[in-house]
């Protein structure tokens, strides 16, 4: 879907565009504004990091980006289509087809095999069994775990689990990957491997948005968005055009 694109090309298509997104939580009489007008633009093929300390609105941002939550106001354009007004069912379909979720704690289903885990999003997309299986094999190879298809997640290490989770996120060829602190539960060495995998995917055309509190990772992103107190405090474009050395 996302053919590798010349990084310098200016006509790079917009994948995600948030315009003046606000999110206010109302709990009883307490009104808590969490996001106060967020504007970001993620282009196809970018590796974007959203950094912020806890309480900065990072999680809310992630939920809105992942369409698990709807903004109070503002516009959300996914591949130049408005999605902020869609129904729950339509949102579920978009999450399924357009977004590849990667969680901090992997969120694999412990009683399903690796192959079955990778197949889950395809299950909800109604992909026939045979096709699912072929794609699961292909994806597991892509993340380097082709030999582990029959295993259960409990038999795998943390790093391997996250690889499977990444394979799963790719199964419906989404518009972008949305990773929530993907290295948060991993040791340094494994983290580096996972980041390396992300770079590989990015290099082969995947658009990736990674939400993290870890400033050490910012060197890896094409673009870094700093969240502070519900606002974008800095919007840095660094190394657009080539990743840093991986495996630091």
């Amino acid at each position: 879907m996302t053919a590798p694109m010349e990084p310098t090309s200016q006509e790079a298509l917009s994948i995600v565009k948030l315009e003046d997104i606000c999110k206010t939580y109302v709990t009883g009489e307490l009104i808590v504004p969490v996001l106060k007008g967020i504007n970001i633009d993620v282009m196809r093929g970018e590796f974007v990091g959203i950094l912020g300390s806890s309480g900065s609105g990072k999680s809310t941002m992630l939920n809105i980006l992942g369409m698990l939550d709807v903004p109070t106001s503002g516009k959300y354009l996914l591949e130049r289509q408005h999605v902020e007004t869609l129904s729950d069912t339509e949102l579920a379909t978009i999450r399924n087809r357009k977004i590849g979720f990667i969680f901090q704690s992997f969120n694999l289903f412990p009683h399903l095999s690796v192959e079955q885990n990778i197949e889950v999003p395809m299950l909800y997309a109604g992909v026939p069994r045979k096709v699912r299986r072929e794609r699961a094999i292909e994806l597991s190879r892509q993340v380097g775990l082709g030999h582990r298809l029959g295993h259960r997640p409990t038999q795998l290490s943390g790093g391997e689990c996250q690889r499977i989770a990444i394979a799963r996120s790719l199964s419906n060829k989404p518009a972008f990957l949305l990773a929530d602190e993907p290295t948060g539960n991993l040791d340094e060495k494994t983290s580096a491997d996972i980041i390396k995998l992300f770079h590989e995917l990015n290099a082969s055309g995947s658009t990736i948005i990674m939400v993290t509190h870890n400033p050490a990772l910012e060197a890896h992103f094409d673009k870094v968005i700093y969240l502070r107190d519900g606002r974008v405090s800095e919007h840095q474009n660094i190394n657009f055009g080539g990743g840093p050395d991986v495996g630091e």
Partner: peptide, 16 residues
């Protein structure tokens, strides 16, 4: 709940 949440995030509809 975690399973349900994950399934919903991965694209399961309420109906599913």
């Amino acid at each position: 709940r975690k399973e349900i949440g994950t399934r919903r995030a991965l694209g399961a509809q309420k109906r599913d």
